[in-house]
C-alpha cells in the first residue's frame, strides 16, 4: 500500500473569533529552526490590523463586564484545552524554536501552567491592588483597578508559545482585550493557540492574533487612536540578531493619544536609548505586575451621613 499523503494545514489569522486569510492576499514562507520550509503564513496588512482593533473594541464591553470569577474560569478552560493538544503544541514549538522533543514538552507544560497561574489572578488582583483610603473627612473612598481597554501586544520573537502566553494571559486576565502580533519568524504556535482560544469559551475578539512582519504592522497599532495600551515585549530581536523594530519610535507614535506603553526589557545608562532584550519566560512572574500594567485605578468617593 502506498504511503498516505498527509493533509497539510493552512495557517491563518485569528480575528473576531474567525480564521480569515489576510485581506491583502499576502503570505510569507515560514521555516523551521534549520531553515527548511514548513508552511506559508498569512502576512497581515494594515486593514487586517484595523479590523482586529475593531474586533477587540467590540469585545471589550462584554469581557470587561464579565465577573472576575467568570474570566478566571475561561482562562482555566484555555489551559484545559491546551493540555488536550499538548503533543501538537510540542511539535510546533520544537519545529519553530529548534528544541528537542523533551525541551519542547517542558515549554508547553510551562505555557499551560502560566494560563492556570493568571486564571487565578482574575478575582484577586482587585483585592491586592485596590485600597480603602482613610481620607480626612466623612467620606467613603475606594480605589479599584479596572481594565484599560484594547491592548496591542508585540509578542516575543524567540519564545513563540511560552512568551506569547506570558504576555497575552495577563492582558485578558485583567479584563482588557488585545491584538497580538505573533513572533514574526516563529508564528505557527500562535496560530494553533488561536484554534485553542476559539474552542475555550473565550469570546470572539477578546484575543486577536496576527502573523506577519512585526516592523511593518507595529506602527499601525502604535498610532491607532482606539488602542489604549501597547506592550513592546516583541521589539527585542531574536538572540544574536539586530533589531528590526525601533521601540522608541513606536513609543513616540503612541504618545499622540497618550497610549500606555510597556517598554521591552533591557538595561542601559540612565536616559540613554538602549536595546531591548527578551527575558527568560520560564521564570515565574514576580507578581501581577503585567496584569496591573493594563489596568487603571478608579477612585470613588461618597459622603457618609445620617
Amino acid at each position: 500500500m502506498a504511503a498516505r499523503l498527509d493533509v497539510r494545514k493552512t495557517y491563518k489569522l485569528y480575528v473576531g473569533g474567525k480564521f480569515p486569510r489576510s485581506e491583502s492576499g499576502r503570505s510569507y514562507e515560514v521555516t523551521d529552526a534549520k531553515g527548511r520550509f514548513v508552511a506559508n503564513a498569512a502576512m497581515a496588512s494594515r486593514k487586517d490590523a484595523r479590523d482586529a482593533v475593531l474586533a477587540a473594541r467590540a469585545a471589550f464591553a462584554g469581557w470587561s463586564g464579565a465577573t472576575a470569577y467568570n474570566r478566571g474560569q475561561v482562562l482555566y478552560r484555555v489551559a484545559e484545552v491546551m493540555e488536550g493538544r499538548h503533543a501538537q503544541f510540542a511539535e510546533e514549538v520544537a519545529r519553530a524554536e529548534g528544541l528537542t522533543a523533551a525541551k519542547a514538552r517542558a515549554v508547553v507544560d510551562a505555557a499551560i501552567d502560566r494560563w492556570v497561574w493568571y486564571a487565578g489572578w482574575t478575582d484577586k488582583v482587585a483585592q491586592v491592588a485596590g485600597a480603602a483610603n482613610p481620607v480626612a473627612g466623612p467620606y467613603f473612598n475606594l480605589s479599584v483597578p479596572e481594565p484599560t481597554g484594547v491592548v496591542a501586544v508585540l509578542a516575543p520573537q524567540a519564545s513563540s508559545l511560552l512568551g506569547l502566553v506570558s504576555v497575552v494571559a495577563p492582558v485578558v486576565a485583567g479584563g482588557s482585550t488585545c491584538v497580538v502580533l505573533a513572533s514574526e519568524r516563529r508564528p505557527l504556535p500562535a496560530v494553533v493557540l488561536g484554534e485553542v482560544l476559539a474552542t475555550s469559551d473565550v469570546p470572539g475578539g477578546v484575543v486577536n492574533l496576527l502573523t506577519g512582519v512585526t516592523a511593518e504592522s507595529a506602527p499601525w497599532l502604535a498610532s491607532h487612536e482606539d488602542v489604549d495600551a501597547l506592550d513592546l515585549a516583541g521589539a527585542a530581536p531574536l538572540p544574536g540578531e539586530d533589531p528590526t523594530v525601533d521601540w522608541g519610535a513606536l513609543e513616540a507614535a503612541a504618545a499622540a493619544t497618550l497610549t500606555r506603553v510597556v517598554r521591552p526589557a533591557g538595561t542601559g545608562a540612565s536616559g540613554e536609548p538602549d536595546g531591548a532584550v527578551e527575558p527568560d519566560w520560564t521564570v515565574l512572574p514576580d507578581g501581577p505586575r503585567r496584569v496591573l500594567a493594563f489596568m487603571e485605578t478608579k477612585t470613588v468617593w461618597h459622603p457618609k451621613g445620617r
Binding site: A131, N133, P134, V135, A136, G137, Y139, N141, S143, T148, D228, T257, L258, E296, T297, K298, T299, V300, W301, H302, P303
Partner: peptide, 22 residues
C-alpha cells in the same frame, strides 16, 4: 480615574488621583 458621587472636587493625600485615556 476619580468618580465623586453626591460630592465633587474632594482631594486627600491618601486618595489616588489621576486619569484614564488622554
Amino acid at each position: 480615574g476619580v468618580v465623586w458621587a453626591n460630592t465633587f472636587n474632594r482631594f486627600d493625600p491618601t486618595s489616588p488621583f489621576g486619569g484614564y485615556k488622554e
